[in-house]
Simulated assay, not measured.
Amino acid sequence: MNSDIKTIENKIKQIIEKNEDAVKGFQKAAENVKREGVISYFQNRAKQRELFVKTLHNATPVLETGDAEISGSTKGTMHRTWMDIKTFFTSNDDEAMLKEAVRGDESAISEYNEILTETMLPHRMKEIIREQRNEIQNDLETSGILERLV
């Protein structure tokens, strides 16, 4: 198999794993916050990222990207544990969780931008990744507004 194609496959797998981590992270954040609007925000973000994972799996049937179950990574599990600890010691849980979401989204955007530079990336996959990146970018702006309100 061509090394360029293998590199692209690995990057797509990383994006899928990042989104799996985001699903679980947003679910965990929804459990840790108190305000109904912020709970709803995180629940909606988890659903959005589940859709991202399904879309990426459906667009890459030839890849061995694992099963459709949302599992996430060991690094993501450690981050969710950190979120629990931070919530325990932080007086404003909603703000702390929103800041963690922003940090994760900024990291995701960087990974999306990196794969978009791949010249061998199929056109349809590039469209999907660009659309998902743009949605995450829009969500970052929304979370900034929410941060100011909590």
Score class of each variant (00 low, 15 high):
Met1Ala: 12
Asn2Gly: 04
Asn2Gln: 09
Asp4Arg: 12
Asp4Gly: 02
Thr7Gln: 09
Ile8Asn: 02
Ile8Asp: 00
Glu9Trp: 11
Lys11Asp: 04
Ile15Asn: 07
Ile16Asn: 02
Glu17Ile: 15
Glu17Gly: 01
Lys18Thr: 12
Asn19Asp: 09
Glu20Tyr: 09
Ala22Cys: 04
Val23Trp: 03
Val23Arg: 05
Gly25Pro: 03
Gln27Ala: 09
Gln27Glu: 14
Lys28Ser: 13
Ala29Val: 07
Ala29Ile: 07
Ala30Val: 09
Asn32Trp: 03
Asn32Asp: 05
Asn32His: 06
Lys34Trp: 06
Arg35Ser: 09
Glu36Gln: 14
Ile39Pro: 03
Gln43Arg: 15
Asn44His: 12
Arg45Trp: 02
Gln48Trp: 01
Arg49Cys: 01
Leu51Arg: 11
Leu51Gly: 09
Val53Trp: 01
Lys54Pro: 00
Leu56Pro: 00
His57Arg: 12
Asn58Thr: 10
Asn58Met: 09
Ala59Phe: 02
Ala59Leu: 06
Val62Ala: 13
Glu64His: 12
Thr65His: 14
Asp67Cys: 04
Ala68Lys: 10
Ser71Tyr: 09
Gly72Met: 06
Thr74Asp: 13
Lys75Trp: 12
Gly76Glu: 04
Thr77His: 11
Arg80Asn: 13
Thr81Leu: 13
Trp82Ser: 05
Met83Trp: 06
Met83Asn: 06
Asp84Asn: 15
Lys86Gln: 12
Phe88Glu: 11
Phe88Ile: 10
Phe89Pro: 00
Thr90Cys: 05
Thr90Ala: 10
Asp94Thr: 10
Glu95Trp: 04
Glu95Arg: 15
Glu95Gln: 13
Ala96Pro: 05
Ala96His: 07
Met97Arg: 11
Leu98Trp: 03
Ala101Ser: 12
Arg103Pro: 00
Asp105Val: 04
Glu106Leu: 11
Ser107Ala: 14
Ser107Gln: 10
Ser107Leu: 12
Ser110Cys: 03
Ser110Trp: 04
Glu111His: 10
Asn113Val: 11
Glu114Thr: 11
Leu116His: 03
Thr117Gln: 08
Glu118Leu: 08
Glu118Trp: 08
Arg124Pro: 00
Lys126Gln: 07
Lys126Ile: 06
Ile128Trp: 01
Ile128Thr: 09
Ile128Leu: 07
Glu131Gln: 13
Gln132Asn: 08
Asn134Leu: 13
Glu135Gln: 15
Glu141Pro: 00
Thr142Gly: 01
Leu146Asn: 11
Arg148Pro: 00
Arg148Leu: 06
Arg148Asp: 15
Val150Thr: 15
